[in-house]
């Protein structure tokens, strides 16, 4: 990396400040100030109207005894367990299938990419209809195969799974693109050399493609985990956390506390615990990567 030559140090500094001042202001407003404020907020009881009351760690003590907090935590993690492995495996397989440039494949790619650009609220509404007990197409398909009708969003045992199906459907696109970009970076000569040595397609997949794709797989794994634990939009539209607390997730519970019951301090305490979970998950994944990620 080289800096621009022929300009005085003073000019460099002046232009540096001119070019970054807006970013300093907007990053402070959007991240650093709320971050600091959030720490203080979590130690208070505050309804956004009367004066905040300092209560120390009471919010944190309360949440450890709050059954809804634990249900929301459990749901967020089960949701991630449904969504993350499915997305990683399916998007990898789909990407290997789409890694050709024929007209048909190019057309199919567009269909696979659509959910990424579509409002999550619009698709959640359609999926709500698809899952509808009486009118929905899914129960119609179940009947066609002589399977029993289900109350997909109304049955506490199925609701979280149904929301997760929408999450998987919506989360594939982005990761297919990442995998496709990675596949296109593998030099063709590797496969040609393997072919000369008599390798089968399966050999090439497991001994060339999979190891060379492991850094991207790792990236996909980490980002999809972080993304899925934060599920909110689909829950908000399709189930409102119900039936009962069957689809309450951490972000949904933060939202309810903050903007429904106006328990700002308590909501913030939950948000910090969520952040702690995300950091721990990321650290675990980084610690494990040495065992399976292959860097050239």
């Amino acid at each position: 990396m080289r800096i621009l030559g022929g300009i005085s140090r003073k000019k460099h500094a002046m232009y540096f400040l001119l070019f970054t001042v807006a970013s300093f202001v907007f990053s402070s407003l959007a991240y650093y100030i709320p971050f600091g404020y959030g720490i203080r907020l979590s130690l208070t009881s505050y309804d956004a109207i009367s004066k905040p009351i300092f209560i120390g760690f009471d919010n944190f003590k309360e949440l450890f005894q709050d059954p809804v907090f634990w249900v929301s935590t459990k749901n967020s993690f089960i949701y991630a367990l449904y969504v993350v492995p499915t997305i990683v495996i399916l998007s990898f397989l789909i990407a290997t299938g789409l890694n050709k440039e024929t007209r048909l494949i190019m057309f199919l790619r567009v269909l696979y990419f659509l959910p990424m650009v579509t409002s999550s609220i619009a698709v959640s509404l359609v999926w709500k209809w698809i899952f509808h007990r009486d009118y929905g197409i899914l129960n119609r398909i179940m009947e066609f195969f002589h399977l029993p009708r289900q109350d997909w969003l109304g049955d506490p045992k199925l609701a979280l799974l149904s929301v997760a199906i929408v999450g998987i459907w919506g989360g594939l696109s982005y990761n297919i693109i990442l995998f496709l970009a990675g596949l296109q970076n593998i030099p063709k000569t590797y496969y040609e050399a393997a072919m000369i040595d008599g390798a089968t397609k399966k050999d090439m997949l497991f001994y060339i493609t999979v190891p060379l794709m492991s850094p991207i797989t790792f990236f996909v794994l980490v980002t999809t985990t972080i993304w899925s634990v934060q599920v909110f939009d689909t829950v908000f539209i399709m189930t409102s956390g119900g039936p009962g607390y069957a689809t309450y997730t951490l972000v949904y519970y933060i939202y309810r506390n903050g903007f429904f019951w106006f328990r700002m301090g308590y909501g913030m305490a939950i948000a910090w615990v969520l952040y702690g979970f995300l950091l721990i998950l990321t650290i675990i994944q980084f610690a494990l990567q040495r065992k399976w990620v292959y860097y050239e």
Binding site: P34, F35, Y37, L41, I254, M264, G267, M268
Partner: peptide, 10 residues
Amino acid sequence: VVIIIPRYLL
């Protein structure tokens, strides 16, 4: 989402 409440208050 972690800092959405203080963002709102700001």
